[in-house]
């Protein structure tokens, strides 16, 4: 290969571009199948709109500025909730992972709460916190908390004894030991948890927006559903999917920068 490229050629190697082609190709094929199925008349077009109609609705929304404002409203809540939930989850995970009394006291309760579906908590949340921004951010934080807590707890719990021993013989103890060994060793685990939390916090936020909200992308999707506007509703879903994918890629890149010692996957 090297002989075919100039020294500073920025274009990707053939294997990389053919990989991208395969991914794009399969996505395009799926879209084509969807378009054909929707247009075939087997399903009513208003329950099952073709991607061309969805794309059209998406473009219209974008042009009118409605899409941007909806995404911004949801995005603010989602990022605040994700940050809050991840921090609390990581802190809780560090505590319950390393300190046995904390684990015995808190773990059963947290595991119990973790499996309660978001929709079942909605009425309670509405009752206690109302329908303002705080309640939505709290709900998104709730969604983010559990994956981060669980993955951090597992990571901290499985910090190898050898690292702790080595650090102690080098003079680390107490809080210093924490900071120098437990936290760095469990960061990759926490990062995985945050990656999951990116989507679970969005699920929780969507539930909150659909039940009582003044704006937001999930609110918009529900609104379109109520008015039988299936293409617009699917356009909202598509927008969320794209944003989620982009967020995930950004996050993965950030993790690679911040945790450079990881062996490349």
């Amino acid at each position: 290969m090297p002989s075919r490229f100039a020294a500073n050629d920025p274009s990707p190697s053939p294997s990389e571009s053919s990989r991208a082609l395969v991914s794009l190709g399969s996505a395009a094929a799926a879209l084509l199948v969807w378009e054909a199925a929707a247009r075939s008349g087997v399903y009513p077009p208003h329950l099952f709109p073709p991607p061309s109609a969805v794309l059209r609705a998406l473009v219209l929304d974008a042009r009118s500025g409605e899409l941007a404002s909806d995404l911004a409203a949801s995005g603010r809540r989602w990022s605040a909730g994700l940050a809050l939930g991840s921090l609390c989850g990581a802190a809780a995970g560090l505590l319950t992972g390393a300190w046995r009394p904390a684990r015995l006291a808190a773990s059963p309760l947290l595991h119990f709460l973790r499996v309660v579906p978001f929709m079942m908590l909605m009425p309670l949340t509405l009752l206690w916190f109302g329908i303002g921004e705080e309640s939505k951010i709290l709900f998104a934080a709730w969604g983010a908390f559990f994956p981060v807590w669980l993955s951090t707890e597992t990571a901290v719990f499985s910090v190898e004894r050898e690292y702790v021993w080595a650090a102690r013989t080098l003079g680390a103890d107490g809080l210093r030991l924490w900071w120098e060994v437990y936290v760095p060793r469990s960061l990759p685990g926490t990062a995985t948890g945050v990656r999951l939390a990116v989507s679970t916090s969005m699920f929780a936020l969507a539930a909150a927006e659909m039940v009582g909200s003044f704006d937001g992308i999930a609110y918009r999707a529900f609104y379109c559903y109520q008015l039988f506007q299936s293409e617009k509703m699917m356009a909202c879903i598509a927008a969320v999917g794209v944003c989620g994918y982009v967020a995930d890629r950004i996050f993965a890149a950030a993790v690679r920068r911040l945790l450079p010692w990881q062996e490349p996957a």
């Binding site: 690292y163 013989t169 103890d173 760095p184 060793r185």
Partner: peptide, 20 residues
């Protein structure tokens, strides 16, 4: 009294901190 740098330790596995 406890561990310290006067008694250096070299282990078989997980010897080095991977994050440094």
């Amino acid at each position: 009294p406890g561990p310290g740098v006067e008694r250096g330790l070299v282990l078989q596995k997980h010897a080095l901190f991977p994050w440094r």
